[in-house]
Design a protein around this nucleic acid. Sequence first.
DNA 1: CCGCATCCGGGGCGATACTG
DNA 2: CAGTATCGCCCCGGATGCGG
Lengths: 219, 219
Amino acid sequence: MKTYHQYCSVARALDVVGDRWVLLIARELLALGPSRYTDLKRGLPGIASNLLADRLRTMEADGLVERRDAPAPIGTGVYTLTARGRDLEDVLRALTRWGVPTMQSGPSPDDAVQPQWSALFAALTLTGTLPEGARTVIGIETGGDLVHAVLGPHGFEVTRDLVGDADVTLRGPAVLVGGLLSGLLSVTAARKLGLTVAGRPDVLTDLVPAVPTHPGGTP
Amino acid sequence: MKTYHQYCSVARALDVVGDRWVLLIARELLALGPSRYTDLKRGLPGIASNLLADRLRTMEADGLVERRDAPAPIGTGVYTLTARGRDLEDVLRALTRWGVPTMQSGPSPDDAVQPQWSALFAALTLTGTLPEGARTVIGIETGGDLVHAVLGPHGFEVTRDLVGDADVTLRGPAVLVGGLLSGLLSVTAARKLGLTVAGRPDVLTDLVPAVPTHPGGTP
DNA sequence: CCGCATCCGGGGCGATACTG
DNA sequence: CAGTATCGCCCCGGATGCGG
């Protein structure tokens, strides 16, 4: 049995996105935009290759992703979110906010850490809090990789190759980046703990961070 | 392997609520409040009894539910959402809204239909759109069962035993109830299709319904 | 009857190997 | 690089049993 067989909006939504890895695939495509198979596999440590292929097929059948056949420079196919898939942003935002308390313990030794996750975290929790006409670029570097979150009043974009300069760049352990962006740490506190903040830190304090909810369950 | 082993807020959230049935258990507890084991089993058609017991145990260990030992009249234990569990309301709301397009096809022959799902649908999508001081009670009857959704500006409650009168009562197929509440159907259109609207229909048109997103994938 | 625990069959899932 | 193929395990679903 795959479907819940319940005429309920939650159950029907979970019939589509409730399977393992599906929402994380959407997370990667939302963060990095059109991606190749290998890019997705890199962004989803732990997924089996057959499962990724399976999920992409069913997600395509469900109208969440599209597979296109090369934009020109590269000869390989790329996967993109459809409009329906991009609507999952609200679901991912809700999950992201709810997950904040579970991040306080920091990564365990066998946890993967990737900077685009922190960038998407910033993008999802901070989007919509910027004044009209503003545009904030946050650089995030954890573990050698560098990505940029470009935030505006009505949307965001996460990119690896930035044109222009970032307003502020954060370098250090992911837990400090997340703690700072979620409002659990102040800029000075994060700096004392080892975070490097280059550029204009004031653009961070201007943003309304994710409100921490309740202390959270067992870490 | 249970956890994703990714230091990402979405992945960590799904480590807790990503398992099958967990979010639907939260849905039932959010809709009906403190419930007994049998009540939950009734509200979750298709779940195996051992799975429900397993899920309740892990959800208790994760700090999502609490098991109390009888309020007085009944001698059996009841399950309640903790504050942390109630915070899942935002996740359920996002899933509910995203699932709206999947509801247009109506229930398939082997789909279960329960009125508290429609009531929670109304509560989740309409809450927060009421003016200060307002209080709207919507009765929903599908398949013989009747529940009430009590909506206020800052919260909601779904109850079986209502004290007082409902502002408006909807009787008929669940698809018409959902269509009306989600804004896909007007009151007159729903009536023509067979929905009975008793009381003051104007309280419905005053509410801002869930905005339908994109047409949605395969039904 | 309520609230589970136990047993069992099937399939989803995870890891590895292999191929165009 | 982009998947396909294969295998073993464990989760899940369905049925039954059992103590209070």
